[in-house]
Amino acid sequence: MKAFAYAKAPDLAAALAAIEDPGTSVIAGGTEMVNWLKEGIATPERLVDINGLPLDGIDARPEGLRLGALARMSDAAPVVAAEYPVLAESLLCAASPQLRNMASLGGNLLQRTRCPYFRAEVLLPCNKRAPGSGCAARHGETRTQAIFGWSDACVATHPSDFAVALAALDATVIIVGPRGERTVPVTGFYRLPGDDPTVETVLAPDELVTAIDVPAGPHTRASHYLKVRERASYEFAMVAVAAALAHDGGVVTDARLALGGVAARPWRLDRTEAALRGVSLDDTEALRAAVAASFAEARPLAGNAFKVKLAQRATLRALTTAGSRGMVAS
């Protein structure tokens, strides 16, 4: 690990001033940044610690949630469990209890891919690590890679569970920077790799995430996060689904679906959501057809075609589970 200089930011203004210098990185929970420092993925000259800033609130209001960027995963989960089960589940099935005690919500959104080529202890051909070095994964080991939205420059997926649940609930990210405050939907927060996979989000280097807003609605209780993984715990998702539904006597009036583990960003299933309106949750054939509508555009790689099948089945399962919750609740 390269040596760096460290300071605790006394206030937000100081933190923002510090990161105007491109050699300065931010550390919050540290569960990602410390790994990046150890692996040489990040090599900052200076590290500004923002943990002391008053950005750790968890406020449940009638119009929705405001989650401070520095709230810890383990603290947020119990607060949102009753009204937003999909959020709580996405938090509690991630990482381990120790990591959830450390990891901040803002940092969770800013995780980087678990692609084994990217995470290697040495530099491998990876356009994220070394622009122009190529993508060894593209024609290499693709089992865990993307099936949507990839490019020849990068086939990696985003690892966050929480971001997938937020995307399904149409949450927004509050960002501050030298140009003031702005709000970005989670669905628009992440960039697909295109020609430049080094830029993963719309967050500028001189900006900070301060909070996440999650709007309330009739769909948030009838929601579910389904994570498919081979190890029973403490593993990233092979495929994950966030589902939230509103329905009237079992007939879907509103559906929100997002997939994890399939693309460089949480992948909303817009076509499926549209096709589900008016469909009865008892009509498995119609549900299947609605799910399939979003998968025509799937582009599996040589080693991960099974994820197309798996994601559809997981989506159907998550829909059914979310729907049953709604009925129990009402």
Partner: peptide
């Protein structure tokens, strides 16, 4: 692994090489 149990009832789109 997952795919060993899913494969026998396979009906996914064919893998592609170009976007």
């Amino acid at each position: 692994s997952i795919e060993r149990l899913l494969n026998p009832v396979w009906d996914a789109p064919t893998p592609t090489t170009r976007p």
